[in-house]
Amino acid sequence: MSTRASTLTGRIMSAPSIIVLFLWMAVPLGMTIYFSFLRYNLLSPGMEEWIGTLNYEFFLTDPAFFASLANTLLLVGSVLIITVVGGILLGLMLDQPIFGRGILRLLVIAPFFIMPTVNALVWKNLLMDPVSGMFAWIASLFGLPAIDWFTNAPLTSIIIMVSWQWLPFAVLILLTALQSLDRDQKEAAQMDGAGPVSIFFYITLPHLSRAITVVVLIETIFLLTVFAEIFVTTGGGPGLATTNIAFLVYTQALLQFDVGGASAGGIVAVVLANIVAIFLIRLIGKNLDN
């Protein structure tokens, strides 16, 4: 099938996409790397000079970097645990015969389609507001004091909002994987007297392992760059309490106009994301061979 002519056609037809993607990624990335070695502030144009790795030294020794790195890891880790565990439980639930299951599934996956700014502002105001929010009212029903979420537990609030948004993603993928589980195998195990718990740990969970890996890797890539939820609710504060790496780079670039420092931060973010990306690409590459 792959004659020389068809190979050539194939190259010509796939070239435009590859070229535009290359320009979109490689050129700006190259510029970011170049900027990261410059003293370059938008407020003092024409003063750019080569300063070697000084931007990296500043960025990596800045207490704000450690705070935001810790926040990033906490945010990613917590959301991953919540969505994967919740996703498995909800996936198992939706895999059972339920009255009106199709509609119920639509309700459960709905949060995934809500745009991040809406998600953040609805949660911050309608639900988490310490005076008029739904949670404050529910707490008062039990005679408990209302929690001022964004003052006392800002990062937790962000984690809750982001988890709510990504839970459906985990559910969708794990449910799809569950539905491809071989029923005969489960029935055979039941005949042999295996209880639901051992079926789960010895049959269901191993079957899900690949899907779980995919969920973890893909979510990590998106969660490393959570931005809008922080942008519209806390603005990174109070202090640095909700500043993640993505938000720190944003403040340095577009609020402090420190192009050099922000570029160094951007490269650090790229390196972090690539650590995850390598695993994901290997996994998907293997899948492509089958």
């Binding site: 990624m25 990335l29 951007g266 690409i281």
Partner: peptide
Amino acid sequence: MLSTKMMPPVGVLVP
């Protein structure tokens, strides 16, 4: 192509 998708947007925000 997939790997370009892994690039965090803050990495290219400035340029």
